[in-house]
Design a protein around this nucleic acid. Structure first.
Lengths: 153, 153
DNA sequence: GTTGACTCTGGACCCCACTCCAAGGTTTAT
DNA sequence: ATAAACCTTGGAGTGGGGTCCAGAGTCAAC
């Protein structure tokens, strides 16, 4: 028994996204419906639902549609040839992701110290702004941002 | 002894951003130079450098300029009135940040399993795509995305 | 067999976040 | 004192990521 396919409106509701957006993603190659009805209606499977959810959450954390497309296109094959290519792309993305997690954790920490300092905190306003909270946590550790900073030209 | 102020080109190089972008951010209220020279040149302090770096890293992890402006505008004051407002905004952002960290960690895990499965892995291609890797990790745990899913209308 | 809710395609339009001039003033090096 | 390298403002243009029609076909219920 295979489960019924979803029409675009149904998928849109489940994924909390507009129908237009689904068609837009399709036009740009991020996802296509598993099937079409006789009349040409798009029909989506459970995998499609999973896929759109992935797209949305990757977008949430700062990936562009192009990057998401790359992520979705990744395929580990037995083919020795493509293997290195895939691995290097994956490792590159992995580095990006790790980096972003660190950045978010820094932000989280300082938001937390702001939240704590706020009302009810006995110490009256230790850090007053997010930047002060940040530089305080950073004291003595790695710098904000930094990057490889290859001066242009 | 106070340290010298930076001209826009110098700040731009240090922060790895274009001068146009700095002026753009200024126009939109995200940052203004600490001073202006007699001739009207923008002059930036070390704090300004810290600020632009924060802006860039917040952007990296998916915040819009509007949200970043809100973050930067947060101020914990002794004023009992504003306190609750600030705290609720901070806590809201905190939730967003935490959520994003989780999403990134999920992505990270599946990238890792892809990377491991890739070349040199003895098991020939356990998970072949990122979606398969994801659904595998998720088996039995919380769903992908989900949200409160209040159907529109 | 008509109403109402759904879907289709195609194209116009919109906002955000830059990016790129043009025309001119300033600073520094020679 | 003049060129090269900087800076200024203002405004136009661009690309990404949607969003919103219009006009037409489909489907279920009455």
């Amino acid at each position: 028994m295979k489960r019924p396919l979803l029409k675009i409106g149904e998928l849109a509701n489940l994924a909390n996204v507009s129908q237009d957006t689904l068609r837009f993603y399709e036009k740009h190659g991020l996802m296509r419906p598993s099937a079409r009805s006789e009349a040409g209606y798009r029909l989506y499977s459970a995998q499609d639902l999973q896929r759109i959810r992935f797209i949305l959450s990757a977008k949430e954390v700062g990936f562009t549609l192009k990057e998401i497309e790359e992520l979705l296109a990744l395929e580990v094959t037995r083919d020795e040839k493509s293997c290195q290519d895939v691995k290097s792309l994956v490792d590159e993305k992995l580095a990006t992701v790790t980096q972003r997690i660190h950045e978010l954790q820094r932000i989280k920490k300082s938001l937390q110290s702001l939240s704590d300092a706020c009302c009810g905190g006995d110490e009256p306003a230790t850090h007053c702004t997010i930047l002060e909270a940040l530089s305080d946590h950073d004291a003595g550790s790695s710098l904000v941002g930094g990057k490889h900073h290859d001066l242009i030209k």
